[in-house]
Write a protein that binds this DNA or RNA. Structure first.
Lengths: 197, 197
DNA sequence: ACAAACTACCTATCTCTATAGTTAGTGGCA
DNA sequence: TGCCACTAACTATAGAGATAGGTAGTTTGT
């Protein structure tokens, strides 16, 4: 159900076509709620059917058209209602930690490769999060900039601080994961002997 | 797909009935990979069909019977193969962080309630993880104790250290989440004014 | 003039998850 | 004897999500 609200969150910044949504999504909301375009298009349709969005057909080139979605009053209301209702707690589901608990079954080389892959993934992810956070701090983030236009300047600080707060949480998680992977690599070296090469 | 391997991991400690699995599961493997019994029973059947498990019918009381599952050679092989293959990276999907990014839409009271609920959940979860970690350190964890029986004492240290390592990672994540929630509550107070009460 | 890359918008299928049941025997106790 | 909690093992169903396609028009470069 969160996908619906992730899309509403994005569309409150400005009306967009499905294609825009699926592109913008991967650069912002997807950092907290990933979804592929094959989920986005049908969900936009359902949201229009449910009255949360309304669409206008916009010409594109000579023959082409595209559909631009805008959030309706009902959509804003639904989003606000979701924001004010308690969050669902997600259950732990982490293949990396599952594997870590049974690492005595793995070949030392495979154990090392896993942890390195995990470390590299989080290193990259962390860099992306920090870069995005920086564009929030200096307000150059395109979606944020568009969003602030609807508000009085007195509200800007408040809006930006919440977004930075969310990224700070993601960055903490990424740092913790990274640090854990490093310790894991040291542990494998200690228990299995340093790699022979 | 990880459920299958989570079950295999648990069943390598000793043969169990479906019921035992679903009970033990919630106290150990579920900390890294949660699943309800309605997923466990059908998956055990499929695993038997695929030759990873074999079952023996055991009498229970006067008329009752139960089915005890044991991991087959093929099951051990499949588990080892999974352990040696690269992990799938999970995509971010965190409703709490999604909401946090748009907290300017929430009523201050609702924002506080969310963060308090999140904090309380992680406080409780952290306590459970730390308690479980302690039973690994002193080797009183029942599943661990049964598992160690199959191994030479020289291997015990190695096996236990990996399990503690996994819990250390989970504990780090829980601490980071908790700390983030506390900072969030302070931020709400700063931006929306302290609660009137 | 043509290809390649990009914009736009889906569809199909399979698996995974969540939620909420059902049926039946066991063991204890009042 | 009846009741209740527990053990045991599912089933049914709907919705979410992953993966892998497809089709058609547009823009840009050669």
């Amino acid at each position: 159900m969160s996908l619906r609200f992730a899309l509403l969150a994005l569309l409150t910044s400005r009306p967009m076509t499905g294609y825009d949504v699926s592109k913008q999504f991967s650069q912002s909301v997807a950092h907290v709620w990933h979804a592929p375009d094959s989920q986005i298009y049908p969900e936009l349709n359902r949201m229009e059917r449910d009255g949360l969005l309304e669409s206008a057909v916009v010409p594109w080139g000579k023959k082409g058209t595209k559909k631009e979605y805008a959030v309706t009053e009902a959509g804003v209301e639904a989003f606000r209602e979701w924001m004010d209702s308690p969050i669902e707690i997600r259950r732990q589901r982490e293949p990396a930690y599952l594997k870590a608990a049974y690492l005595e079954w793995a070949e030392p080389g495979a154990a090392r490769a896993e942890l390195e892959q995990f470390r590299d993934h989080w290193t990259e992810h962390l860099a992306m999060l920090e870069a995005t956070r920086a564009t929030l701090v200096d307000r150059s983030h395109p979606t944020l900039a568009r969003r602030l236009e609807h508000y009085d300047a007195s509200q800007w600080e408040r809006i930006v601080r919440y977004k930075i707060f969310a990224y700070d949480g993601l960055i903490d998680q990424a740092r913790a994961a990274l640090n854990w992977a490093e310790r894991g690599l040291a542990l494998v070296d200690e228990l299995e002997g340093a790699p022979v090469d």
